[in-house]
Structures are given as structure tokens and as C-alpha cells.
């Protein structure tokens, strides 16, 4: 299951009619079960890049292929997880997780069985009947992860999923996500502002330039898992990525 991104460019037309180039000629091949993190200066087009991969935005030119199949719109092979407030508040936790299965017409018992499996996986076994407003921010994101996993996508796209969480919850969620990733064996593409998060999670960290975003450097993080944030190798990779972004951020 390879995800191939070829010559991807995106030009927006602003309300004033100006053309704004957001992405410029991005090429990237992502392997099966790889954990990719995308970082870059604020407003560089990270989210746009992710949304195009997920079929939520349309590229101006270039292609995205998932195992040779061209992506033209949202597909259940790729599930997106947003920063926050993505749960359906009128549905219970289990009905949120089972939503994608419900769309496929699975009978209630069957979809609940699958949904329960994924609730267990994200550690929310006892919360099936709760509503999202009864959960903390971290728990809500775990529900969102379970909901995405339940449709068994090949790729999970995550747009700053932990950006709204406090630092402690965030670190815990990162560890849990790695555990889930190892169990569920998915490809993950993860957009974040946090270099620390990117280096902690990713197999490779893709550093983008300022707008129009190009790939500045692909930083492999060979450092083995579980990672230790305080070891010298981690620190030096982190420092390198921070410098890449600092170079791009200066002068803007």
C-alpha cells in the first residue's frame, strides 16, 4: 500500500481575485505502515497538503495515487482526524464510532461489535453510552481515532489532532497513538506545529518551506522506539528540524 504524491501544486484564488500559490510541486512516496509527520512554518500550507491527500480539497495540478489508484475525492480508504469538535454531539460515543459502518448499512449488532473492539483499543471501554460533551478533550480525540479506525482505512490523516490539548494529555496521547499505530498497522500522516511531537512520533519528518510550500528536507528519524526525548540523538534531530523551520520563518 503505497501512497504516491506526484508534482502536487495548489493555487488559490483569493476574494480579491489574486492568485495565491499554496503548494508548489511536491513529490513524496509514503510506504505502508509508515508514520509521516509534516511540519513547517505557520500558514505554509501543511493543512492544505493534508486535505488534498484526503480528497477534501482539489489540487491545481499533480496526482495522488493510493496503490496505483488515483484519489479524486474523499475515500473511506483514508480517514481524517481533525483538531477538535469533530464528534457528532447528538450521538453517543458508540454511535459516533459506528457511524462509518452505519453508512455502509451494517446491522446494529454487527457495527456495535466492531465499534466496541475499537473503543477497547483506544481505552474507552466504559464510555459507549456517553455523549461527547461528557468527555474530556483527550477522550474525545480517542473517540475520533476509534471512529476513523472502525472503517478500517489504509491511511489515517491527522490534522493537528492534539493541538487543543494540554501538554500532559498531549504527551500521553502521543504514546497511546504509537501503541495504536503498532497494533492497527496503518499508515499515518500527521500534521503538527510541534517539532517535538513530529520527531517523537514520525519515521520521517517532512519539513516544508514557507509559502508556496515545497519539501525543504525529509528528515529520517532512525532513532528506535520507544523514543526517549532526553537522549542526545533525539535532541540533535529535534534541533536540526527546528533550525530548518527557523530558516523558513525568518524574513516573513
Amino acid at each position: 500500500m503505497r501512497l504516491e504524491i506526484r508534482n502536487l501544486s495548489k493555487i488559490f484564488v483569493s476574494e480579491k481575485g489574486e492568485q495565491i500559490e499554496a503548494l508548489s510541486n511536491i513529490n513524496l512516496t509514503i510506504d505502508e505502515q509508515e508514520f509521516i509527520c509534516i511540519v513547517g512554518p505557520s500558514g505554509c500550507g501543511k493543512t492544505t497538503f493534508l486535505r488534498i491527500i484526503g480528497g477534501l480539497d482539489v489540487a491545481t495540478s499533480g496526482t495522488i495515487q493510493l496503490n496505483g489508484q488515483v484519489i479524486t475525492g474523499p475515500t473511506p480508504q483514508m480517514a481524517m482526524i481533525f483538531q477538535e469538535y469533530s464528534l457528532f454531539p447528538w450521538r453517543t460515543v458508540i454511535d459516533n464510532v459506528a457511524f462509518g459502518l452505519e453508512l455502509r448499512g451494517l446491522p446494529k449488532e454487527e457495527r456495535y461489535q466492531i465499534a466496541k473492539k475499537y473503543l477497547d483499543l483506544v481505552g474507552l471501554t466504559g464510555f459507549a453510552e456517553n455523549f461527547s460533551y461528557e468527555l474530556s478533550g483527550g477522550m474525545r480525540q480517542r473517540v475520533a481515532v476509534a471512529r476513523a479506525l472502525a472503517i478500517e482505512p489504509k491511511v489515517i490523516l491527522m490534522d493537528e489532532p492534539f493541538g487543543a490539548l494540554d501538554a500532559q494529555t498531549r504527551n500521553r496521547m502521543q504514546n497511546e497513538l504509537l501503541q495504536i499505530w503498532e497494533k492497527a498497522k496503518k499508515t499515518i500522516i500527521f500534521v503538527t506545529h510541534s517539532v517535538d511531537e513530529a520527531v517523537f512520533l514520525g519515521d520521517r519528518v517532512i519539513a516544508l518551506t514557507k509559502r508556496p510550500a515545497k519539501i525543504k528536507e525529509i528528515v529520517p528519524v532512525i532513532h528506535c522506539r520507544p523514543r526517549d526525548r532526553t537522549c542526545s540523538e533525539f535532541v540533535s534531530i529535534r534541533k536540526h528540524v527546528l533550525e530548518l523551520i527557523a530558516e523558513e520563518s525568518s524574513g516573513t
Binding site: M78, F99, R104
Partner: peptide, 17 residues
């Protein structure tokens, strides 16, 4: 909320759904 619509379409919802 736009996010709800986007989540639903990535999970495979048709227009009717």
C-alpha cells in the same frame, strides 16, 4: 459545522446520508 460534513464524507457518506 463544516467539520461534521467533512468527517462524514471521509467516512463514506453519500449526499443523501
Amino acid at each position: 459545522r463544516k467539520t461534521w460534513l467533512e468527517v462524514a464524507s471521509t467516512l463514506g457518506a453519500s449526499e443523501r446520508q
